[in-house]
Amino acid sequence: MSRPVRLPPTAQAIVRGDRRALARAITAVEDGDASADLLLRSLYARSGNAAVVGLAGPLGVGKSSLVNALVGLLRARQKPVGVVAVDPSSPFSGGSVLGDRIRLERRADDPDVFFRSMASRGAVGGIASTTTDVVRLLEAAGFPTVLVETVGSGQVDVAIREVATTRVVVTAPHLGDEVQTLKAGLFEIADVFCVNKSDLPGADVAERDLAELASLGASRDGWRPTVVRTSATTPSGIEELWSAIEAHEAFRAASGDRAGAERRRLAAEIVDRVRDRLAGEVARALEDDPALARLLDQVVDRALDPRTAADRVLEQRLRAR
């Protein structure tokens, strides 16, 4: 039930399919520009309907190659597809080499594929803090499917849970210890397990291990993870992979998982936003507001404890609104 809001011009351009406007808006979102705020507010009502497929898994298992294969399959079926591929930012320089695009093969003049590389910019969990909002822009631009490739650190790519509606955990034969770390984190969030590089020896064993794990693991919200075998480079198994993803999307739609998981995710987002804003305001006020500065002086002098000071700050903030 969206209110009939008049969209700002940039939002209109994005909805109309202007890819330059979309590209610039994504930059604004990444950079936290003021212009992005209005845009995201006005376009939110147009998000929430796409299949957002997260691909997570250890370094080099073939996530980008699978993205490329899935893009090929969807385009062969005339379906538009957006891609967001996240790579890590260097903790030292803040810079990044974003290399997932290398695997992309598509017609340079195909407007129905949009591929965007993102740096994690210090966020942990395999995606950037703005990835969710970037996916929303792609949805507003009319992409019914959005593929999200995570950083590729394996066990810690669990933030994909926050953005994806179907989570694919990618593995490959002979990962050895990597599989152990997968079990520790990613394993619990997988809707689909994909054993890629199945053209290499050892795929049978890897598949059997995963199938066993998948059957041992308690089903989540009534869904038991499926296991598929692919070779992204051959390619083979891509249709099966897509079918498994579609099956989970259909399950979600039918089971009301949407109401549950989606609701939890959005509640968490609201809490995060309130916390961030309140924390920012208070940090500034402790420096700029003389009354609060005196309060802080008291805490420094041990005349007041930090908990009581926090109570006072909260009371003062709530009154100020």
């Binding site: 930012s89 320089s93 080499v97 974003l98 290399g99 590389s117």
Partner: peptide, 9 residues
């Protein structure tokens, strides 16, 4: 990258 840029390769 080491100079802080985001390099799309």
């Amino acid at each position: 990258r080491d100079a802080g840029m985001e390099v799309i390769y």
